[in-house]
């Protein structure tokens, strides 16, 4: 049973059609990697799921609840309840600079979920341990490397116990050395059967971790299948062309 269903998602910025009828179903425990050239609409699609961008047409259903139907989003109160169950990790981390690492992580559990502070802190420490940053709980984001900031951002999203994690090019702002530490954390999450949608340029990661790879170009899904099917034996010309360029 699909936890996330997106049907016929259309989105335009003015006259520019960025998404032209995207259909995606994601099952529980699945890791879906979305790849494609810049401007293909992959990030926009991800951001439409939690209304950071608004779709013009299409339906999004998450865990049986309607996020948007025929291009119209549910009201904000309903959405906030649903978004609690969706974690998002951004390209630029977007940690709260005035808050320490642990404060970043407990913020939403405290004010959105109304958790008790001790519980939130205990949970946050466990998550920091998981992402390998136990010694940084009192540091501020500006004192951390990009890779460390991104791992904190992952912990912050996980603190809400999300049913799905959305990763929007999580390693694109990192140099290759730091990319590895973030991907390692994401591998661990995948191994723990977290449901994830990952928009990425890391073909190695997609091949190794994804249960399904979706290749997008020009606002449509061009090809979709197992990593082996899409990355090793692409059928579509456009996919072949793209992979030829990125893999060289």
């Amino acid at each position: 049973m699909a936890i996330l269903e997106a049907k016929n998602i259309c989105k335009n910025f003015g006259k520019l059609e960025v998404l032209r009828g995207i259909d995606i179903e994601v099952n529980r425990g699945e890791v879906v990697a979305i790849i494609g050239p810049s401007g293909s609409g992959k990030s926009t699609f991800l951001r439409c799921l939690n209304k950071l961008e608004q779709i013009n047409d299409g339906t999004i259903i998450f865990d049986g609840e309607v996020i948007a139907e025929n291009g119209v989003y549910a009201n904000d109160k309903v959405l906030r309840k649903i978004f609690k169950k969706m974690g998002m990790v951004f390209q630029n981390f977007n940690l709260f600079p005035q808050k320490s690492v642990i404060e970043n992580i407990i913020e939403a559990p405290l004010i959105v979920k109304k958790e008790k502070k001790e519980d939130a802190i205990t949970h946050a420490r466990k998550l920091l341990n998981e992402v390998g940053l136990s010694d940084k709980e009192n540091a501020y984001p500006c004192q951390l490397s990009g890779g460390q900031q991104q791992r904190v951002a992952i912990a912050r999203a996980l603190a809400m116990n999300p049913e799905i994690m959305l990763f929007d090019e999580p390693t694109s702002a990192l140099d290759p050395e730091l990319t590895g530490e973030v991907l390692a954390v994401m591998r661990k999450l995948a191994a723990e059967k977290n449901t994830m949608i990952v928009v990425t340029h890391e073909m190695g990661f997609a091949r190794e971790v994804a249960s399904r790879v979706i290749f997008m170009d020009n606002g449509v899904i061009v090809e979709e299948g197992t990593p082996d099917e899409v990355l090793s034996n692409p059928k579509n010309e456009r996919t072949k062309q793209f992979l030829n360029r990125v893999l060289k």
Binding site: F83, F90, N94, L95, A108, V112, A153, M160
Partner: peptide
């Protein structure tokens, strides 16, 4: 203040 700060908050379910 960068848009990302708002987005991070909204994505966490804040009003």
């Amino acid at each position: 203040i960068s848009k990302g700060q708002y987005e991070a908050g909204y994505a966490l379910g804040m009003s």
